[in-house]
Simulated scan of single mutants.
Amino acid sequence: MNDKRLKDFLDGKTEYTLGLFRFFVNALEQFGTVNLIPLKSMIAVEGKHKFAYLTQLGKNFIHIVIPFSKPFTDNLCFTKIAQVPGTSQYNHHLRIYQEDDFNDEVKSFLRMAHDGEDVD
């Protein structure tokens, strides 16, 4: 059973990282209601479905993974794109170091994931 709480992920984080986290959540709320679901090792972000995962809250960044059904290689924002073995899921890794990193390109990919529009 998973008894993680959001507080468990946020405790001990720098105020800078907490600010990035709050900024990220507030920005996602522009797409509609979002729920944060603490899992064993990450925080799932859910709208109508789970569309992103906060996998790391570092000293000065947040790391987000966005799953898509195909790789979006023509971008400037993802630090890594990896296919989940045995599936047609491609995890797109994104690091936010400052609020400006949450630019139009990042927003468009997150909106696409939120809306479930990751196919041609």
Rank of each mutant, 00 (worst) to 15 (best):
N2T: 05
D3E: 15
R5L: 15
L6Y: 08
L6T: 03
K7I: 11
L10D: 12
L10Q: 04
L10E: 07
D11N: 08
G12M: 06
T14P: 13
E15G: 10
Y16Q: 07
T17L: 06
L18M: 09
G19N: 12
F21S: 05
F23E: 15
F23I: 10
F23P: 12
F24I: 02
N26P: 05
N26H: 11
A27V: 02
E29L: 12
E29W: 02
Q30P: 07
Q30G: 03
F31G: 04
T33R: 12
T33L: 13
L36Q: 07
L36G: 08
P38L: 00
L39C: 14
K40C: 13
S41M: 08
A44N: 03
E46I: 03
G47K: 07
K48C: 12
K48A: 14
K50P: 12
K50S: 11
A52L: 04
L54V: 05
L54I: 07
Q56H: 14
Q56F: 11
L57G: 07
G58I: 01
K59V: 15
K59G: 15
I62K: 09
I62Y: 12
H63M: 04
H63I: 01
V65H: 02
I66A: 05
I66Q: 02
I66E: 01
P67E: 14
F68Q: 02
S69N: 12
S69A: 07
K70R: 13
F72W: 06
F72A: 03
F72N: 01
T73Y: 03
T73E: 07
L76Q: 14
C77Q: 02
C77W: 00
C77I: 10
T79S: 05
T79C: 08
K80Q: 07
K80C: 00
A82Y: 10
Q83L: 04
V84K: 09
G86S: 06
T87C: 01
T87R: 05
T87H: 05
S88M: 08
S88G: 15
Y90A: 00
Y90W: 03
Y90K: 00
N91Q: 07
H93L: 01
R95S: 10
R95P: 00
I96F: 00
I96R: 00
I96C: 00
Q98D: 10
E99A: 11
F102E: 00
N103D: 13
D104T: 11
D104E: 06
E105D: 08
S108W: 08
R111N: 14
D115P: 01
D115A: 03
G116H: 13
D118K: 01
D118E: 01
V119C: 10
V119D: 14
